[in-house]
Design a protein around this nucleic acid. Structure first.
Lengths: 142, 142
DNA sequence: ATTAAAACAAGAATGAATATTAATGGATGA
DNA sequence: TCATCCATTAATATTCATTCTTGTTTTAAT
């Protein structure tokens, strides 16, 4: 999705196009993992010296309400933000919290088998697999 | 699982058996949905007049660390506690937050297809489907 | 029964997230 | 061009779930 498409989505829904919102979204899609609001804040401070953490939260809420991103709440710590709203698996390291997306073969077909049996229409989904990433399981051995 | 089995699990892992821990676990398995710490606290106050919210959190942490329950963190509000740690689907109403478990046909087989493709061994999983429950979608129409 | 370790209750502290408020800066029309 | 409007922003205060601290009580081994 390029910025022009974003502009259109914002305006169609009555939101103004602001450099802060664009920056948050573009930063999110630039990353493979799913950063927290604070991480985004620290990353954008350099190019946007006056941006505030409140604005980050605000922008993330707008993006989430527009369905452009998904917010992932966890047991501990802060929420993480995922620019991918399609069906996929979040591989979550239970030690360091690192997250990356995973697309098993035939996932969409399998997921359809599950959702087809429902009487209602889902508005979203979340699939997490918890494990220990290579880095963390190596540290355990030492 | 009866209380005797619980006793054994606690002791085997170096935890003492306390009435508070038993009460929290037994209350959880008595419920179809997945209450929050505060709900558990309010429910147990009658039979345990001196119990504190801190103790609820403590007991829940112990039960979680023993693998007896799963903690589900969400974007908004408090964590919810699920005494079912097997593979299942959490049906989460995005309006009122009500949760109930769902077991689609062949879920275990489908899930094995997904996890078999992994190089690592998962330590846990979480599958949520977000939707609007009947009560909430009826309220929207009015 | 004695005793040490673990767990408890009560309340303070923490920290993520939201709410509030005044300032900012485009857009619009005179 | 200028003034006004209004959503958004930045800064700050506040909320609320959860964790931590302290002193007391309970558990369970001896």
């Amino acid at each position: 999705m390029d910025d022009q498409e974003l502009y259109a989505i914002f305006r169609k829904n009555g939101y103004k196009v602001t450099s802060q919102r664009l920056a948050v979204y573009n930063y999110l899609i630039s990353r493979e993992d799913h950063p927290s609001a604070d991480e985004i804040f620290n990353a954008l401070k350099e190019e946007h010296p006056t941006i505030s953490l409140g604005t980050i939260y605000n922008s993330l809420s707008v993006l989430r309400d527009l369905g452009l991103i998904q917010e992932l709440g966890f047991n501990e710590g802060s929420s993480r933000y995922d620019p991918n709203t399609e069906v996929h698996v979040n591989m979550v390291c239970e030690k360091c919290g690192e997250i990356h997306d995973y697309y098993p073969e035939f996932l969409e077909t399998l997921w359809e088998k599950i959702t087809n049996s429902l009487e209602i229409t889902p508005t979203g989904q979340r699939i997490d697999i918890y494990y220990q990433c290579e880095k963390c399981s190596n540290q355990m051995k030492e």
